[in-house]
């Protein structure tokens, strides 16, 4: 039975987990599910990202990289205290990040809770900035699947172009990989035309091996992007975890030719970190991924630091933090 190779579990134990009403056994439809995935050499991964961090990025390359980072940014606000006013402000900033200089930006997307999608849609009308909405009982994902799917459908109806879903980490850690897979596949179906980003929440997965495993499940189940974190758990995105996920993307590309996107989110705060991530992408996946279509930063604090560095490169002097809008 093919599903064995997918889950690594015996047929007996699996039969219970796939017998969920309302979900087809989609896992079996994806023969390229590389499972069990290769073990990750943690020392080599950390050494590799540390080595890539040492490449100094200066002058033209720095400006080019920072401008690219702005265009790759999913400007995010995911707080209980979010207001329509804050989201409108953020949308203005996404459209023209550096006030008075339209050559910088626009950002790739705005990332908000479903309730604020209509506000963003209104504010972004006529621009190229996409609307991403978190869904599936973000950030914990601890709700019944039907609720998660409703959440997704509602967000898409409200106008979201991209859905950021969270995987069921509990199922992932308890080895119920088929459940994780089927949920992602079901959400992908519910997304319709909207792009799906699969948040692995790597800070809760515990090991690079599990991250690699979750990446492959997310990719095979139909995720257009895989994303490190919700931003609600520490540690969030790290360069090492990003490299592990990029290598899963690379191996999937080698196997199928399909290009899956990557989004580190949470914990990327400085322009220097952003350049480091870009170097990791460039050296792992090459030029094709140096585009907002395939690489995004999920961040809120990052943009101002990038703008500050860009202004410093332009004028030769550092601006004050207050020279840039906060929200």
């Amino acid at each position: 039975m093919q599903i064995d190779s997918i889950t690594g579990l015996s047929t007996g134990s699996l039969s219970g987990s796939v017998a969920r009403p309302g979900i087809a056994v989609r896992a079996a439809q994806y023969p390229l599910f590389n499972f069990p995935p290769p073990p990750v050499d943690a020392v080599a991964v950390e050494e590799r990202v540390a080595a890539l961090a040492k490449r100094s990025i200066k002058k033209d390359a720095k400006v080019q990289g920072l401008r690219l980072a702005v265009r790759m940014m999913d400007l995010t606000t995911l707080e209980g205290k979010d207001t329509a006013g804050k989201v409108r402000g953020l949308c203005r900033k996404a459209i023209e990040p550096l006030f008075g200089d339209p050559s910088v930006g626009p950002c790739a997307a705005i990332c908000v809770y479903p309730n604020l999608v209509p506000v963003a849609k209104e504010a972004l009308r006529g621009s190229t900035v996409k609307i991403a909405s978190v869904a599936t009982a973000f950030p914990s994902g601890q709700s019944p699947l039907s609720v998660k799917l409703d959440d997704v459908r509602r967000a898409v109806e409200l106008g979201a172009d991209e859905i950021d879903m969270v995987i069921d980490r509990g199922a992932m850690l308890s080895g119920d990989y088929a459940k994780v897979f089927d949920e992602i596949a079901a959400v992908k179906e519910a997304c319709g035309p909207a792009h799906l980003k699969v948040i692995l929440e790597t800070g809760e997965l515990g090991s690079y091996d599990t991250v690699r495993k979750a990446s492959e499940i997310g990719i095979a189940a139909g995720g257009d992007f895989i994303k490190t974190s919700t931003g609600k758990v520490v540690p969030a995105a790290t360069p090492a975890v990003t490299l592990v996920m990029l290598e899963a993307i690379r191996d999937h590309f080698y196997a199928t030719g399909r290009k899956v996107g990557m989004k580190p989110a949470g914990g990327v705060r400085t322009a220097k970190q952003a350049l480091h991530y870009l170097v990791i992408v460039k050296e792992t996946l090459g030029d094709a991924w140096l585009t907002p279509d395939l690489f995004r930063f999920g961040a809120s604090a990052l943009l101002n630091d990038v703008l500050m560095q860009l202004e410093k490169e332009r004028t030769g002097a550092y601006a004050a933090g207050d020279d840039f809008s906060k929200d």
Partner: peptide, 16 residues
Amino acid sequence: ATDALDFGTAWTYSPA
């Protein structure tokens, strides 16, 4: 199924 990755010149590092 293999496509080659393109490690081209889309973003060249300035000499440092």
